[in-house]
Design a protein around this nucleic acid. Sequence first.
DNA 1: CCTTGGCACTCACCACACACGAGTGCCAGC
DNA 2: GCTGGCACTCGTGTGTGGTGAGTGCCAAGG
Lengths: 338, 338
Amino acid sequence: MLSERRLEVLRAIVHDYVGTEEPVGSKALTERHHLGVSPATVRNDMAALEEEGFIAQPHTSAGRIPTDKGYRLFVDRLAGVKPMTPPERRAIQNFLDGAVDLDDVVGRTVRLLAQLTRQVAVVQYPSLTRSTVRHVELLSLAPARLMLVLITDTGRVEQRMVDCPAPFGETSLADLRARLNSRVAGRRFSDVPQLVQDLAESFDKDDRGTVTTVLSTLLETLVEETEERLMIGGTANLTRFGHDFPLTIRPVLEALEEQVVLLKLLGEATDSGMTVKIGHENAHEGLSSTSVVSVGYGSGSEAVAKLGVVGPTRMDYPGTMGAVRAVARYVGQILAES
Amino acid sequence: MLSERRLEVLRAIVHDYVGTEEPVGSKALTERHHLGVSPATVRNDMAALEEEGFIAQPHTSAGRIPTDKGYRLFVDRLAGVKPMTPPERRAIQNFLDGAVDLDDVVGRTVRLLAQLTRQVAVVQYPSLTRSTVRHVELLSLAPARLMLVLITDTGRVEQRMVDCPAPFGETSLADLRARLNSRVAGRRFSDVPQLVQDLAESFDKDDRGTVTTVLSTLLETLVEETEERLMIGGTANLTRFGHDFPLTIRPVLEALEEQVVLLKLLGEATDSGMTVKIGHENAHEGLSSTSVVSVGYGSGSEAVAKLGVVGPTRMDYPGTMGAVRAVARYVGQILAES
DNA sequence: CCTTGGCACTCACCACACACGAGTGCCAGC
DNA sequence: GCTGGCACTCGTGTGTGGTGAGTGCCAAGG
């Protein structure tokens, strides 16, 4: 077990390294923080911390830098979440309040997060699986061609073309539309499949083929669109990454372009509470020198999607976590209002 | 006027510099290209080219590199467009053919372009202004709340909420829907305003307010959504930019995040034919060391949107132009088919 | 008039040596 | 268990000289 002071030393190392981006030595530490002990003592503590794998030296006769494990300990036990100041909170709320539609909400959120944390921001669109159906609409575009429009409670709209096996009259269409809506409106997406299961049977034999096609398209939409969309921003902040530029930044940019990777990344985060993945804890190799701070957000008490930031492992964790949490909270409010 | 050989020298310089990314000297030039003259002669030619501002030396006693003006001359008079090889064409077509909807087409296009050119690709969504209306749908969500859905011939869907001043019955709704569609379906967006101008007058006094509201929302949608969307990809290719990294790449990333900037960029390109903006020819300051190759594409003979790539001024112009042109052509085909 | 070989000059780049200093580990003493 | 002292390591910055690619200019030849 590490003594209280040694933890304090680790905290000081993380703090200084995050600030200066340079290995921190024993002397500098005692000068900047009043630890009440001499550099020699700190050196002993550092040796112990290194022994345990919390810090490392880039090369002999240089200061120490925190390892992934060191950061882990830091966020778990040494650092709190730094709350936003009231003016910051007001600014967040004002900025988000101006949004006019869902795209705008997500767009503003991503810009806001990027700006607050000066890192790369990732915001997932509210997920279909956890949302509820507001309305299903069927439009007749041609005798045997329909358009299926799905509207969610989070304001998202999905549409699909449906080619019918046989012409489908306006009355049948109105009938189907009405019955479909009475069954699924207000229900969760995950419940839809069993709610519409036997719907086709109640139709005329002539129309049954079309109804089945429509229903399967609807279910397809649900499944396919569970493959979620997201928006990223603030990639310019990657330039503040470090000195050994191209090598570090390239894989990160590549990872950010693979939405699949990012979705998996956010998916791995716990549903409630904040998740911090540090360095190699991230499954994706290209992100092994980055940390991901993510949190769920939602219009009600339940999370419908996630958002977060991607930055260097050497980041200001308390501040970043504070910003992420605050933004998630306000986005949730905005969504609940609309 | 520059002699034929001097132009040839310029072409050789551009070619070599693009390949090696290093200033090219007279000796190396005569060795790699059989110009039939000695280095001394080339030196004289280079002095003349420098005098005219087509090339420059980074520092005394180094080779020459092309200036923006030099590249300009190169693309205007010295280089053709390098056509894609048949296998490449097939690959493009195959890749694009797999697309399932508009988002997918745009997404695939952007990835394809980025991969082919190894640069940053920008693809604009088919513009609303130049498309035609396929269908307008009105849904009643609540007694005094409607949803307006607009479907374009390019498969794009826009929706808006409409809060009515008074409850609006189903029959009135059906009536409005029918009349609206008979007027605007198949028509160009730009013609819609005058087509619906006097529509409200033919309705009951009770409904007139709602109809007016719906119409103005429709017109708003047309105007607002003329603010186009676009997709970018291949930002990881920025890492191949040059050596003096952070300074060059940062403003580019920032510019790429400002969709407004990119839209203006594409907007400046001529409607038909390919446009190449080199270095400082780009209005945006952050892009002063990049070149933008863009071209319009469309489902018919007319361009409905633009696409292009952003890369270092030191790029392979013939190859890039060939790829951009080929991709635009095939995307146009795909759109026309769907 | 254009081309060519020759020649002196410039200057970025590299390798090497060297001094400096921040930082370390270890140890004896308090 | 903390502290001061001490010898040691080693990355970094600086200066120096050599090398070579590249240049501009010039005088001679087609």
